[in-house]
Design a binder for these strands. Structure first.
Lengths: 259, 259
DNA sequence: TCGTTTTTGATCGTTTTTGAGAGAAATGCA
DNA sequence: TGCATTTCTCTCAAAAACGATCAAAAACGA
């Protein structure tokens, strides 16, 4: 590491941290403290600011680049963050499935939790675009139909226009969807347009559309627009969802279940 | 193993374990402990997290890749039988692939061997009905298109009429097919009619059809008829194939390669 | 210069991660 | 099969890292 001349101004120090993360891929709080000759509190504040600006991803003990986050942490993160809420949401959602249903399962960590609960449900027909869900239920469980399509590596799901080949030929009673963000004004959004395309296609033809999303995703807006709230029949989320939010949704005809 | 600089942050350590499993196919807890300089408890916790995220499969003493897991569970016999021949056949077949090709990969253990050889071939487009091939190449390698369809558990492939949705919309330069048996009189046969349906569909529209099969399958006949020899352009097999058999095939226009 | 704002460092209670140990389960071998 | 050994799971406590809060220090503007 290049030793800067002291003292260093705050913005300069943050820029240093940023480039360090970019070059090394990962930095430790303790290393930064020694090299920059400031207290850990300051380092933490810097990392917090940089994270807010989307320059890096904090982890316990330091920080990693966003690229790393994209490759691995996303999924790890997603499965760790709010995991309690997610498993409770999955359990609640599971109760909505009736005997003999044909069910669509979207990609994402919350829906993957639901997949795990279906290992003994041989009565169901499961349609999914999630490679992980399919692998999870590869040995036993429902009859599985995979929709085809291009494999999106980051989410391990099949996306894009090719998916319409299979989706056009099957009907599902209930579709369990995930999302990156949901917002009263903008509706549902996700990161990838191809992913949004599939969600849209499914939502348009499913008997009932059930959204699974922890409250941390409330009022978050991502890049690609998926659908408006009128496409959603039920939202299963956790109790931390602000009451006015739930009330507003109910007024718009969405049944809100708090797990 | 690449020795990291210590200490290592937890996410970094897990990523290291993950890539190690991916490359080696199997890791031992004790080896990880020594190399990563942490307690076995920590290693176990890491493996547990990685397993939850579907990144590997824990086994007594360590962990293996998801593909290995499925192999042992379902394909035990097939992967062990004639495995040397199969890997040589796969290597030979790999030579037939040109830069930028779009390639179809059929289900089965021989073709899975070929999939493993394609981890760095980002120039290719891979179309497949094999869940295991897709999982094998989930992190890196060619662009992957999965054909949809019903998941056949025993072979972990997508089969049936729904597959035509995607297959009808793509073209592949070379199709690498597996089979349960091949015979001069009956042509290619396999166990499941739905599986045969897909093979047929692919063979009908691929630029070149390449059959991968060890000599043990010669003159074996299974239940469902796939196709006749005129659909096959190349057969890649091992040297144990009886000479008259090869001669007879060449006379019928099939190029025979002995690996 | 003085008062205000911003930045920094220290402290404290909490959470997360880690390592060690005891008993259970799995494995290998006679 | 029975026995020894390894490996696993579970629990608990120590260590490390964290967030929140507050006061001191520095920077700033009038």
């Amino acid at each position: 590491m290049i030793q800067p001349t002291f003292p260093v101004l705050a913005p300069q120090r943050r820029e240093l941290i940023r480039s360090l993360v970019r070059d090394e891929g990962i930095v430790r709080v303790e290393d930064l403290r020694q090299n920059l000759k400031v207290s850990v509190a300051t380092i933490r504040r810097d990392l917090e600011i940089l994270e807010e600006n989307g320059r890096l991803q904090r982890v316990h003990g330091g920080a990693v680049t966003m690229e790393n986050r994209m490759e691995e942490a996303v999924f790890d993160d997603k499965t760790n963050t709010a995991s309690k809420e997610k498993s409770r949401i999955a359990e609640e959602a599971c109760k909505l499935i009736s005997t003999g249903d044909s069910v669509y399962l979207d990609g994402g960590s919350t829906t993957l939790g639901l997949a795990r609960l279906l290992k003994d449900r041989t009565d169901l027909t499961l349609v999914t675009n999630s490679l992980r869900a399919a692998t999870e239920l590869a040995d036993s469980g429902p009859k599985i139909l995979l929709i085809g399509g291009e494999l999106r590596r980051i989410s391990q799901t099949m996306v894009g226009p090719l998916t319409s080949g299979v989706l056009g030929q099957v009907h599902v009673d209930k579709a369990f969807m995930g999302t990156m963000g949901f917002c009263l004004k903008s509706g549902l959004t996700t990161t990838d347009p191809n992913e949004a395309f599939v969600k849209n296609l499914v939502a348009a033809q499913a008997g009932q559309v059930i959204l699974l999303a922890d409250s941390g995703k409330a009022e978050k807006v991502s890049f690609a627009r998926v659908s408006d709230w009128d496409a959603i029949d039920v939202l299963v989320t956790d109790a931390k969802l602000p009451k006015p939010f739930a009330k507003s949704l109910r007024k718009r005809g969405v049944k809100v279940l708090l797990a």
